[in-house]
């Protein structure tokens, strides 16, 4: 923090102001605008065009076809199932994320880095494998298969299977957002609150939670986006039963494979709207977080 005398930032800049122009501190205008053009072209080709094409294809045959596609009973039941899965998965992983971030950032203990690696594990696992492991656990030939069959409990090819596979896929999202944030904030505020006599819970709700609310919200919307859009893992465990275990992404796949492109893109456009809203919320959160 303490700077040696004579290394103040002002001095060299003011003295050399006249010669500063000859220093190469910026690229030439040609380089600058070429780089901007390259970036915009790349993003247009890979991001903007696909996004635009979804909406154009969805509305190709007019409003009526669009409305009919998204209000088809199969589409509605897919939307409902997707929402149910998100409503169960997101709060569970949010609670886990807060607990894991608390223990990792507020205490020192042996094996902390190992725990961090374990929390990240689902990121390294292919969605298809994430589905496979739950088939191996709960499927007919699986570890608990016999027992589940005898007790007439259905997990795989039913809602519980979809929920647990989605839990696995979105497991690290909230924890990953909170850990760096809470690491940076340290423990001093909590210690102050506790030493002034507040209880642990009171400290958490009145000191910690307000400090992490934007990070938490960010983690939650990322977790939600992935939970809604998960395809590979859910595809393995759902069994593709129409109107029963089809989530929105699976419904899109079925329509697409049946060459019902307009209908597929209509449902896809709904999911794109959710994605765009996610990005907008993310930017608002970042803006708010900077403001604080």
């Amino acid at each position: 923090m303490v700077k040696p005398i004579g290394v103040g930032q002002e001095a060299p800049i003011t003295i050399n102001r006249s010669s500063a122009k000859s220093y190469a501190l910026e690229e030439s205008a040609i380089v600058k605008w070429s780089l901007i053009t390259i970036s915009l072209l790349f993003l247009a080709l890979f991001l903007i065009l696909p996004l635009v094409s979804i909406f154009i294809t969805a509305f190709e045959k007019g409003w009526e076809t669009y409305i009919a596609s998204i209000t088809h009973p199969d589409a509605l039941s897919a939307i409902k199932l997707t929402l149910i899965v998100a409503v169960i998965v997101v709060p569970l992983n949010a609670i886990f994320g807060v607990a894991a971030a608390w223990v990792i950032t507020k205490f020192s203990f042996r094996g902390k880095n190992f725990l961090l690696t374990l929390i990240d594990l689902p990121f390294a696992v292919s969605p298809v494998i994430a589905g496979l492991i739950f088939i191996l656990l709960f499927g007919a030939q699986g570890l608990f298969g016999e027992w589940l069959f005898q007790n007439d409990i259905k997990i795989v090819f039913a809602l519980p299977g979809i929920v647990i596979a989605t839990l696995f896929i979105t497991f690290p999202f909230v924890a990953r957002e909170l850990i760096p944030l809470m690491q940076m904030q340290g423990v001093t505020e909590e210690e102050a609150s506790l030493s002034l006599g507040a209880s642990g819970l009171k400290t958490f709700f009145l000191v910690t939670l307000p400090n992490i609310k934007w990070g938490l919200l960010y983690g939650i919307i990322l977790c939600n986006a992935r939970a809604i859009g998960e395809f590979g893992a859910v595809s393995v465990v759902s069994g593709h039963i129409r109107g029963m275990t089809n989530t929105m992404p699976l419904h899109i796949e079925i329509l697409y494979n049946e060459y019902q492109f307009t209908a597929a893109f209509a449902v896809a456009s709904l999911m794109s709207v959710i994605a765009i809203i996610t990005i907008i919320i993310k930017n608002i959160i970042e803006w708010k977080a900077k403001e604080v």
């Binding site: 979804i54 859009g229 395809f231 992404p249 699976l250 999911m271 794109s272 994605a275 765009i276 993310k282």
Partner: peptide, 8 residues
């Protein structure tokens, strides 16, 4: 790409 479902 983080927000858009992979199937879409």
């Amino acid at each position: 790409p983080f927000a858009l479902p992979t199937a879409v």
